[in-house]
Write a protein that binds this DNA or RNA. Structure first.
Lengths: 203, 203
DNA sequence: ACCATTTGTTATCTTTTGTTAACGTTTTGG
DNA sequence: CCAAAACGTTAACAAAAGATAACAAATGGT
């Protein structure tokens, strides 16, 4: 775990601008709470059964979230550069995670550990903006999840895949299809059939 | 829309205690931003196509969230007394809601309209605690949604229903079955079959 | 360049779910 | 109190998805 380079700091600062803008004095204190870690392909950022003590921000690379159910590997989500990465529930509650988070490409991830997060929430200089930042980020992901649940309830697997074709460029281009299948809530074999069906219908 | 009774204020204050504790001076200002509205059975709290300008807290009663897809009514969620009620995404973004929220029982709901919310977020006396309150509430619902998405991806409809039998007392006892079916991501007919299957297996 | 692993497709068969309609019961509202 | 609406179950059929296995294609590591 290293300190951040100036380029990494600039990237991070720009990306979080819609959520929080620190003045120079705040920024200097804020970045003292950050580290960066590098993950090799297939290396784990979070493991099921262990507490996730980090909130991550992906500078480069990508991760997938997955559960092991009856010995089967079920992918639930993906995150890419400039997105958050964490087993959110475990980080927030301090309880062991029920899922794995794994780098799928060599990845550089900014880490805030829970102690530093608590320190910032208790530091009068930062507390207000960190609370606000946290609120806006939580609200952002809440809305994403809301959409995703709505899709599961109102759409067929085929419709969800067609939607992904329009909006999921990173996922489609950078993730293997059997991971995408579980992400859509179906089996890899079933996704393959859906793809064929679409191909035939549109030709 | 009326002012709140003392009993309603007490109920609200007690319920939000895990999230935020106001001192007396703050509380007096805070409650000036609240109203209470009463909804008859089947009356709408939010309508698709219209902006949801309220964040609600259900004092009594219950609501269901639903979408109209190709003319079909698809229930996505329920909320009961002492829970929040809002078309969250619409409230946060100010864009028209895509779903309806409807009282299923006669309901009393505390309302914070967006103007009052903004006023509190800009009032130095309240801003910090409101930001924190908002963060904790958003995080709470974020974790709920995370679990729900995980259930859609890792469990069969039958498994989701069995889980609901353990944890969804209010839903099972107070909501009609065809609403519950869509909530689980299946049709009412299918839920009826699953129930029969479970009955036969366990007898 | 080679071999092992991973990934994607296809086929077969079984199970589950969706769709539609009918039927009886319960609930609701005037 | 009664007629209408809502609700839950069941049946019959069609469509979709799961499980498994075989095989082909792509990928990766050495």
């Amino acid at each position: 775990m290293d300190a951040l380079t100036q380029a990494q700091l600039n990237q991070f600062r720009e990306q979080i601008m819609p959520y929080v803008v620190f003045n120079e004095a705040e920024w200097i204190v804020f970045i003292q709470h950050l580290k960066v870690a590098h993950y090799k392909k297939k290396q784990h950022f979070v493991e099921a059964g262990k507490v996730c003590n980090y909130l991550g921000f992906i500078l480069s690379g990508s991760v997938r979230y997955y559960n092991i159910i009856d010995g089967n590997d079920i992918t639930g989500y993906f995150s890419f550069e400039n997105e958050m990465a964490s087993s959110y529930k475990s980080f927030l509650t301090g309880e062991p995670a029920i899922n794995y988070v794994q780098a799928l490409e060599p990845s550089a991830i900014i880490l805030v550990d829970r102690k530093n997060m608590d320190a910032m929430l208790n530091n009068p200089m930062l507390a207000y903006k960190i609370e606000r930042f946290g609120r806006l980020v939580a609200e952002h992901y809440l809305m994403c999840y809301e959409d995703r649940v709505t899709a599961f309830i109102t759409q067929t697997p085929e419709e969800r895949y067609l939607k992904l074709l329009q909006t999921g460029k990173d996922i489609l281009q950078r993730m293997p299809q059997h991971y995408i299948a579980h992400f859509l809530g179906i089996t890899p074999v079933s996704l393959s059939r859906i793809r064929k069906r679409i191909l035939v219908e549109h030709k």
